[in-house]
């Protein structure tokens, strides 16, 4: 996925990120004590990040100018290649967003079942297999944490009402 073009984009992004953070570091309160201020270390880190990102930008730009146009054209974001990763991101985000309502047990089972089905396929046999895997795995872990390790996992609105 990497080439000079992508490195240029990343370097610019890192420069913008560093800029925003350096700007925000001016909001860090100074308590007036002796010694190193609270904003000193992060600023050192961020300025070093600016320097390194600039070097990366310069290097990538110079390489971009010297290699052939054909090599530079090779960079393209192929979303199909990242389909499974995007599915995982989406499902995990959904799982987290609904955690307060569904709880860890129901939410976890639905998350694993949904992810297994989206990644593995939709046939009848597979759906039954995925359902079993999700119920057994999450049910087992939920029991280990709740009863074995005494961790109070999010109960969720549904189980609470029920």
């Amino acid at each position: 996925m990497t080439n000079n073009k992508s490195d240029i984009i990343i370097a610019i992004f890192l420069l913008c990120f560093s800029g925003v953070m350096i700007n925000d570091s001016s909001n860090i309160r100074d308590l007036g004590f002796e010694g190193m201020k609270a904003d000193a270390w992060p600023r050192v880190v961020l300025w070093l990040l600016v320097v390194m990102s600039s070097v990366m930008l310069g290097k990538s730009y110079l390489k971009f100018k010297t290699v052939s146009d054909k090599d530079n054209e090779n960079f393209s974001i192929n979303l199909a290649k990242f389909k499974n990763a995007l599915i995982c991101f989406g499902m995990f985000m959904l799982f987290l967003s609904t955690l307060d309502y569904l709880g860890m047990l129901i939410g976890g089972i639905l998350f694993v079942f949904g992810l297994l089905t989206l990644l593995g396929g939709f046939s009848h046999k597979l759906i039954v297999k995925h359902l079993l895997v999700s119920i057994l795995s999450i049910g087992f872990m939920w029991m280990v944490f709740t009863f074995g390790l005494r961790v109070i996992l999010p109960e969720g609105e549904i189980l609470r009402v029920w």
């Binding site: 990644l119 390790l149 961790v151």
Partner: peptide, 23 residues
């Protein structure tokens, strides 16, 4: 791998929650 990965992703969430009990 997709079965292992899916189960482990959920397990990571449970394990991380158990650390400080915050979402």
């Amino acid at each position: 791998m997709y079965i292992l990965a899916s189960v482990i992703l959920a397990y990571c969430a449970i394990g991380v929650f158990a650390l400080h009990n915050i979402t």
